[in-house]
Design a protein around this nucleic acid. Sequence first.
DNA 1: TCCAAAATTAGAATAATTCTAAATATATTA
DNA 2: TAATATATTTAGAATTATTCTAATTTTGGA
Lengths: 125, 125
Amino acid sequence: MSKYAEQILNLIQSSREHLTAEQIYFRLKQSCPKLVLATVYNNLNQLHRQNRIRKISVEGRPERYDRTDRHDHLVCVRCGRLSGLRLPDLTAQLQAQLSEEILSYDLKINCICPDCMTKETENQL
Amino acid sequence: MSKYAEQILNLIQSSREHLTAEQIYFRLKQSCPKLVLATVYNNLNQLHRQNRIRKISVEGRPERYDRTDRHDHLVCVRCGRLSGLRLPDLTAQLQAQLSEEILSYDLKINCICPDCMTKETENQL
DNA sequence: TCCAAAATTAGAATAATTCTAAATATATTA
DNA sequence: TAATATATTTAGAATTATTCTAATTTTGGA
C-alpha cells in the first residue's frame, strides 16, 4: 500500500466525520504540501475497490468516504449533515425476504438535525 | 403545476425505471422537441422540493428520480442497475431506537444482479 | 547501479448540474 | 381588451466533482 493510501486510510478510519475527497486533501496537505487532489482520488478509488473504505452518496453533494465497519447513517434533509449510527444489523432479516445474496446494505435515515430544527422553530416566531 | 412539471411527474410515476434527468429529457423530447435539459432539471428540483418525487443517489452515477411511494432498492455493485423492491416498512422498528423523528429512510441493498453474476461465472471458466 | 513497475503530479477533459439573463407564455386586473 | 405582472422556459455560460492522460518521480528488486 502506497504512502498516501496509508495516510488516507488512517484518516478515514480514525475519523467519524465522513470526509469528502477535498476535505481529505486539505487535511493531508498540511503535512504533505506536495500532495495533489488527483492523488487523493486515485487512492480513494483504489481503497474503495479493495473494500477498505466505503462511499456514502448524499443527494447533490460530493461523495463522502467512510470506514467499513457496519453502521447506518442519519442524514439531515436540510443541511446534509451526516452522522453515523449503529443500529442492529438487518442483514438476516432482509435476506429472509430476498433471493439475491446481500453483499451489504446502506441505510440512510432522513431527519432534521437539532441545529436545523432550532433554526426552523426560530423562524416561526 | 406547469406543463412540463406535469409530464415529468407522470413519466416518473408511471415508470419503475428510476430514470435520470437525461433519460427523462430524451423521452419527453420526442413529443416536445422544444424541451431543453435545463427545464427538466428545473422541474425535477421543484417537484422534489414539493416532495412529489424522490431522488436516489448511486455512487458515481447521475441522480435517479423515483416515485414517492414507500419502497426499497436493490443495487448491483457491478453495473449500477437499480430495481425497486417493497420490503416491509421499517419505520416503527427504527424509530424505536432513535430520538430524532424519522421523516423517511432510504434502504439500498447491494448485490450482484443476475446478468453480472452470469458474466462473472462465465469468466471463471 | 540500472531497470521496471508503481505512484504521483499537473493540468486538461468530461459529466452532471446549476445559474443567469433574455425570451415566452400565462394570469391578473384596470 | 390592453397593460402589466408573474411564472415558465430557453440558451448557453459557469460551476463542481471527478476522471483521464501523459510526463515525472519514486521505489524495489536483479
